[in-house]
Design a protein around this nucleic acid. Structure first.
Lengths: 332, 332
DNA sequence: CTGTTAGCGCTTTCAA
DNA sequence: TTGAAAGCGCTAACAG
């Protein structure tokens, strides 16, 4: 049986409150401090977080509800966020929504039942109403990587439109005019698509429907099928914007199948750092997202909201994603 | 404020104990059952797991202490294990050891302080003593993917030696004699190395030191540098066994750098399914691990130990990994 | 600064 | 079957 605060009392002869106060960083007479510390060591005492939580109403646990743990980018967010949380003494309860809106709703309920202090959410749903149970329970939530239109809660995202726009501008600068885009219908996919449209429009270039390929969710299949469709056109695009890592994998697969090379046969700009291009001797030109900063900010805001009682305006943090120039664009 | 069992009492006029009994699946008079259910619905009541846990001494939380969350294979284990746990009403607390023995020890302490009911561990350390705190606290643990020599606890692994042996035998069957191996010094890396040695020995083939390249931890750098070393030899191996996914990535990178192709210039057998080879139009011959089964078994055993009081003999489950024949071996 | 006291929300005897 | 009462381990007034 683990020792309790009462054992410490028996050992030191002090009152429960004094010991509790010491445990919570209060001021205790030097002499007593030593007594308590010795007793703690001797008895190998560890506070029972459950009893503590029953009184204080918090669990020091954050729920991380992730769109899809198998997604490379989301997985990285989990990795860094959980590390930051651990550093601050919080545990991370992981709930994979597996790209399912229903599962996501269940995950949120689950978090609530487990009495998490807050939630980090990479949403699958596009409907603000998923947040309702959280709102009702008064549990703070910070959106990571994706916004929810109309949500009045904190979020940390990157400047998706602007960075997609810059990426396409780079394509245009290199002389490309027939530029395609493969994107998902998720928040990031759509934002990046808007950036593409904006860049094309500003340059006075056409964006025919056949140059746009889309699917609900990012996947290598999306890239594979999209590229296949482009290659079947009479006038395929000479360059494409790819809205994430998995999509890029799929595109490269299709190009391999067809015996095509990048950038000789097709120019590419993409999102997210890849280990892959190293394996392929292909230096992709990509938009690099500041993963660690996203997590650092997200955790910082969430814990601020959790630990400080008074609430403040929802913070919408937009971080800047930088471009890394590679060699996947042919100058024409 | 969330409603409590007392609100249910006020609503139904029943006793606390009766309501509690209902909540825990006990027999209650039909008439009362209905009353309680209506009150629960009306008040949107959810049991406070913390108060419950304070009495019952369990949290319905499992700690998942992972060697390195960024490892592709370990990440997959996390994904599936957390899904199985969720299905059984358990939450998964994720703790990334980031390949550090010290961090791993801290993670285990953290799990204990958080009063997890059990731990799923992919160990970094090779020393059984990491388990001591768990043992002392009486918290069950199941090792996943890796054994700890001398540990008398449950574990679920694959037949690493035998499958590596089969992989190398395939190389030999295709006529290769100069066969190298790149592996880590982790449990899986070493086991697979032993399988290599065994196959070579049985075939009467030499295993010169220069054909063995090793590092403490699996990484693409290990593969990259290992391959580089092999290529610098007067008589490089014509085929290699690669002990995991990341190593394979590194080897393929190096081959790209040197303008070499698989299997024309070098034959490869590897572990773990890769999306990569599809991207590269290269069908690797690989050992496929039954990831979902590993997790299903691990979770099953752990929860059995958690939920059943009486303890049983430690179970060492060894699952079979199958070979998937591709086209990465040249017949010579 | 210290100690006593009263719960937090729930389960669990135990008697009815 | 039911309900009153005790108590899980801790914190938070409050009085000293």
């Amino acid at each position: 049986m683990a020792s309790t605060i009462k054992d410490i009392r028996a050992e030191t002869g002090l009152g429960l409150a004094t010991i509790s106060k010491y445990l919570n960083g209060g001021n205790v007479r030097e002499e007593n401090r030593i007594k308590i510390e010795e007793a703690i060591k001797k008895l190998d005492y560890h506070p029972n977080e459950m009893a503590r939580g029953l009184v204080t109403k918090h669990t020091k646990t954050i729920g991380f509800v992730i769109n899809n743990i198998a997604s490379t980018f989301s997985g990285s967010l989990l990795q860094h966020a959980s590390t930051y949380l651990l550093e601050r003494g919080y545990s991370t309860m992981i709930c994979d929504s597996n790209n399912s809106v229903r599962q996501e709703a269940e995950n949120i309920r689950f978090c609530l039942e487990k009495l998490v202090d807050g939630v980090l959410l990479i949403p699958v749903s596009k409907d603000v109403s998923v947040l309702n149970p959280l709102k009702k329970a008064g549990v703070p939530v910070v959106l990571l990587d994706r916004e929810l239109p109309g949500a009045d809660c904190d979020s940390v995202v990157i400047d998706n439109r602007a960075s997609a726009e810059r990426a396409v501008e780079e394509l245009i600068r290199c002389g490309h005019k027939r530029i395609g885009v493969i994107h998902s219908e998720e928040y990031t996919g759509m934002e990046r698509f808007e950036g593409y449209r904006s860049a094309m429009q500003k340059a006075g270039l056409k964006t025919p429907k056949q140059y746009e390929y889309t699917r609900p969710v990012h996947s290598s299949e999306l890239g594979y099928d999209g590229m296949k469709a482009f290659l079947g056109l009479k006038n395929p695009p000479t360059a494409v914007l790819l809205s994430n890592y998995e999509v890029t994998l799929g595109v490269l697969m299709m190009m391999n199948d067809k015996g095509l090379y990048c950038p000789e046969d097709l120019s590419i700009v993409s999102f997210d750092e890849l280990i892959l291009p190293m394996v392929m001797k292909l230096k992709l030109t990509i938009v690099v997202q500041p993963i660690e900063e996203i997590c650092a900010e997200g955790v910082r805001i969430l814990l601020k909201r959790v630990e400080e009682k008074k609430d403040f305006q929802p913070q919408k943090v937009t971080l800047h994603a930088s471009m890394k120039i590679g060699a996947s664009i042919k100058e024409i």
